[in-house]
Design a binder for these strands. Structure first.
Lengths: 334, 334
DNA sequence: TTGAAAGCGCTACCAC
DNA sequence: GTGGTAGCGCTTTCAA
């Protein structure tokens, strides 16, 4: 007695039609309780699993969400970056809770249709884009035609696409103000400066300093994203400074960690000589020593919001953006 | 002029049959160069993407690999753990390089058939299991019937399933010997002790100490996996010790980081007062300060090996296990 | 080289 | 409440 490989075989064994088995197994439709019961036990006894692809093909519902990370130019093992890792972990959890799987595809944007090409292949019900990177325009254009899409990132006034992310300007202000409160007077912003998110964080820092009467503003030290490149950048840039800073706003937690390493290489102690604040609130920040003071974007909550919004959009609803309030998490680097 | 949503529509527009379009687009089969060219340009102009699900259904090939993490009892946000994150990042990269996508499904083993139920649903060509956890027996039994499966984890002599992982005993020895070389005399093993992997690491530590004439062996302090639980455990266990250790072998990098935090809370300095060595070689270890001395399992290489072995098994080949040589990476915690 | 037709495994519709 | 039948979009024979 071979195990049934498809629904028809199971139906034959049960002495009913395929339709009945389908109704019994998928829970939809009217089947007598007895028949259902009988079919269920038989299926589980024989280890029968319906083919999800065939089901998907019929119902046009994959129960899968794709996560895409646009890798602008920076194509070196992006998916291993702590930020993306953390995000994919939270998203996988959030989606699993809602009955969806997460499909990770590494996509290097080749043309203006990379998102549509991906979704048109029919493997996902919706798509989550992590970071706008240098693809803001493409994302925006795509959002006019394709709706089940939610983007992690910043929000600009005229934006059409649905995004979830922290208020980066407010977060930047929070960070700078915290350093001021801690007595810092020579404040540096270190990290990437381009893209909607980083740009807004830097603006926030500028604004906070201006409000506090620091007319000179922060010293801006542009660096790469990738951790070891950021370390090299930080070392070179900080050594080059006329006056050593006493407070550094790093553009991200990963950057902050690289900065702290660079400072330690240079013989400075954190927070005694220099205070450093990160941005993101990665769980990782809690693990490092000294534990990292940071602006928490509440990534876990953000992942949940993205999942919720996406599901609503998949159901045809229109949704607005969600702005997460950044919160200061004061640990031991400031 | 609407964009074609399926192959038939495109065929009509091109004035050929569906079969011809299929042959042209999938590259297989004989089509005249001119026809192919014409169809390709038309398809790309109209933004047509073949439905991958339908193709999969016909060819029985999904070009997708599933990654499963058995969560024994410990079901709290496992996917956000740095180890799994790192692994999934490397695997996604390795698989992408080979033309495959990675499907992340959170599975909580319910019965002895959880793996088979997953693969029988037809969404993946093969499966990667991360960690044997308490599911060694299930994995072993499944491997008798289902072959496209590769497991990250340890290897025991009689094992049937294909695994990739470091030689945990050798790694444990390496770690302990390094601490001895550094002058440590009071050596503690801290971390989980159960499961094939952790058990072997601990054995290695024991063996190294015995070989060096330390008859008493290491003090064994069993702790949880999850970072903050591990921190609590470490604090409690270390405070309870009669004699403070001067060297700690942590069962993993994540554990090592928690241990270092605990030591710092207790007022000890690493590596001055106590030396700590981790296990895994997570990129994260390089980022923390002080940078972590660890036994590197070469996860990136391991992910590549897993991908290669899985692809060969998917092609019907039989493959043996791969044991990765653990290498000592000496940074600044020892 | 191309077209016609069958069929992958499932669900949904329409009878009864 | 259940069975028959059509069809999702594609690939793959088999004929022409």
């Amino acid at each position: 007695m071979n195990n049934p490989t498809n629904l028809k075989q199971l139906a034959d064994m049960a002495g009913v039609s395929a339709g009945t088995v389908s109704r019994a197994l998928s829970g939809s439709g009217r089947v007598s309780a007895r028949t259902r019961e009988r079919i269920m036990t038989l299926a589980s006894k024989l280890g029968y699993q319906p083919n999800l692809l065939a089901r998907t093909m019929r119902t046009r519902k994959t129960n899968t969400v794709g996560m895409l990370v646009p890798m602008g130019h920076d194509d070196l093992q992006h998916l291993s970056d702590p930020f993306f890792n953390t995000m994919s972990g939270f998203l996988a959890d959030a989606l699993a809770d809602r009955g969806y799987d997460l499909l990770l595809s590494r996509i290097i944007p080749a043309d203006e249709r990379w998102i549509e090409n991906y979704v048109n292949s029919g493997r996902v019900d919706g798509v989550l884009i992590i970071g706008q990177s240098n693809q803001f325009a493409v994302i925006e254009a795509t959002s006019l035609r394709y709706h089940p899409m939610v983007v992690w990132g910043g929000k600009v006034p005229s934006q059409n696409h649905c995004s979830v992310g922290s208020d980066n300007r407010a977060g930047g202000m929070l960070a700078a103000r915290h350093l001021l409160d801690r007595g810092c007077r020579q404040i540096v912003y270190l990290g990437p400066v381009e893209g909607p998110e980083f740009g807004a964080r830097l603006d926030g820092v500028r604004q906070a300093l201006a409000l506090a009467g620091h007319l000179a503003g922060p010293v801006v030290l542009p660096s790469h994203c990738e951790p070891s490149a950021a370390y090299d950048d930080a070392l070179a840039l900080l050594r080059n400074l006329d006056r050593q800073p006493d407070g550094i706003v790093a553009a991200s937690d990963v950057t902050a960690i690289s900065v702290i390493r660079a400072l330690s290489t240079m013989g400075y102690s954190v927070p005694r000589d220099v205070k450093v604040i990160g941005y993101d609130g990665l769980p990782l920040g809690e693990l490092v020593s000294p534990p990292l003071t940071t602006i928490d974007q509440q990534l876990q909550r953000g992942a949940g919001l993205m999942a919720d919004l996406l599901l609503r959009r998949m159901a045809g609803e229109q949704t607005g953006c969600q702005l997460i309030d950044p919160v200061l998490v004061c640990r031991e680097t400031t």
